[in-house]
Write a protein that binds this DNA or RNA. Structure first.
Lengths: 316, 316
DNA sequence: GTGAAAGCGCTAACAA
DNA sequence: TTGTTAGCGCTTTCAC
């Protein structure tokens, strides 16, 4: 074990020189370099990264806030962030929040505490303005449509994506369209509602289903849909997991897809292909990579929109 | 901003007293406590966690090594770990390794660098002996069957689970059973092969399929299975995602499940229910929680087996 | 109850 | 090319 001073003593140099060698700084003679390396070897020296962080005033760590680590939507984004982090020699600190504001605040505080250099918020419950206030402590990037100079953002244009999917249904002859969201008052839900109103000039509350995130939610949704007196003939669904649960349960209940009800999902998760789900492809892995780049970007904030594409399969 | 000394000066106390107040230590008079708190408030003081880590010699951070953050198997474990971490006031550092040994080593080194107090290895490529060597730097827990005093372990008894599933097939009248694994030489694959030999007294190479982890792999598997001259009538499949891909592709190819081929998956992932996949339920979230507890346990290593149960549905 | 002082281990500006 | 020195900001022992 031992520290930099032990090495310095054994190698007969100063601690500064040891530091230089250890960090590959130039201007160290070959002999001293070797002496240092030998001493380090001999002591089984290991650097204490906390001391480095303290002295440097930065950590090369990025924090990631996500509500559920086990959901594929966030898993994909996380995976993209992780790939980029590895390439850049950064570590990742994650905070699973369950959309609990206190846990979100707790995670945001990592920035204040200088535990992380930057923070990526994949989704949130707490007000954007409180998030924004943390931007003075480091880069914060939000994975949602947001413009302003304090934070960076990377996002899919939910409004346009939803509208395009709606038009796709329309063009296939559907006039009665319902949809599902995770949280009624969530950011993307608002965009979706707006798109719906824009296209139809109205919204029907009984055709909007919320709390739809998982496969089980999709199953429940099918029951709710089936119980409606006036059923939509097409459903635009939160994501492919929910869509999978919805479609499979509809079939179990004796309905046909797309016969009785057409479905479009979001994400283009691998499950959508064998299930023949028409879906809006979202480049989540790529979005994660971009988020990471923004998190480590020096100074300049940016706002990047990533493209979506409708993948036509058999559920419409 | 400012630091503990600034507070001390303003409050008219010593830095030690400030530290006491900030850490809720007893033996500080009410007046001084208030003075300190006021000064901290006034300065918008924020603690530098790196200094704390350095001084304390520990970080309250646990590292998690996982090959793929976006795969549901690891996502579930991670989610369990994260829940437990939150409850205990710990943070999580994750390393996505892609089963790349260099990245694994890089992650293991967080332990040496004192970046994390403990490390959970959900799955690995690098030799167990090199992992073991890191146990002198902190708690390491492996999510696989392993016994020894250096590390803790939490695992499903793959051998027994596989054997029980095999017997289930047998009892349903199947004699020709094939199976799939992720990596031929992986730890759990070895256990599965052993169980197979134990039950049948032989293994047929063409009935073992490897590199099966994702839904797409399941799709591919179906093609390979269909191309066999002598096809197994039952398949024990890596996990429910692979099983889903397999079953759906089999049907697309004109086969019936369980008519032409019966299937048992692993994990009891939510997708297996609506798809009617008979599966071996694995308590992954719980496993993650246990792993975390072991990672922060002082001193005592332990080895815990978590139970599995066969969930009967319609694919057999 | 409180403070002084000695670390924790490394970095970096400055001088030589 | 190298060493000296002054931090980085907090904790904790020991003495009072």
């Amino acid at each position: 074990m031992g520290n930099i001073h032990d090495i310095a003593r054994i190698a007969g140099v100063s601690a500064a020189t040891v530091s230089r060698v250890l960090n590959d700084h130039p201007y160290v003679s070959a002999e001293k370099r070797k002496a240092v390396l030998d001493a380090a070897e001999q002591l089984h020296y290991e650097k204490n990264i906390n001391a480095v962080h303290l002295a440097r005033g930065k950590t090369d760590i990025i924090g990631v806030i996500l509500p559920f680590a086990s959901h594929p939507y966030f898993g994909s984004i996380l995976s993209g962030i992780a790939s980029a982090a590895e390439k850049n020699g950064f570590k990742l600190m994650i905070a699973q929040t369950n959309y609990d504001v206190n846990q979100e605040i707790d995670a945001l505080n990592m920035l204040k505490l200088k535990q992380v250099d930057g923070l990526i918020i994949t989704s949130r419950e707490c007000p954007i303005d409180v998030v924004k206030d943390y931007s003075t402590f480091g880069n914060v990037v939000v994975c949602e449509s947001w413009s302003g100079h304090q934070m960076s953002s990377v996002f899919v244009n939910q409004y346009e994506a939803f509208k395009e999917a709606l038009h796709y249904f329309l063009q296939k002859g559907h006039a009665k369209i319902g949809y599902s969201v995770l949280r009624m008052d969530g950011k993307s839900s608002t965009a979706r509602r707006k798109a719906y109103e824009e296209v139809f000039g109205f919204v029907r509350k009984d055709w909007i289903f919320d709390r739809a995130l998982t496969i089980e939610d999709g199953t429940r949704l099918a029951g709710e849909w089936a119980n409606l007196d006036d059923r939509p003939t097409a459903m635009l669904i939160t994501n492919d997991f929910v869509a999978a649960g919805f479609i499979l349960e509809c079939r179990r209940l004796g309905f046909t897809v797309p016969g009785d009800v057409s479905v479009i999902g979001f994400d283009n998760h691998p499950i959508s292909a064998p299930l023949g789900i028409t879906t809006v492809d979202l480049p989540l892995h790529e979005l994660g990579k971009i988020a990471f780049e923004q998190a480590i970007a020096a100074g300049n904030r940016s706002h990047q929109e990533v493209p979506f594409t409708i993948v036509e399969r058999e559920s419409v």
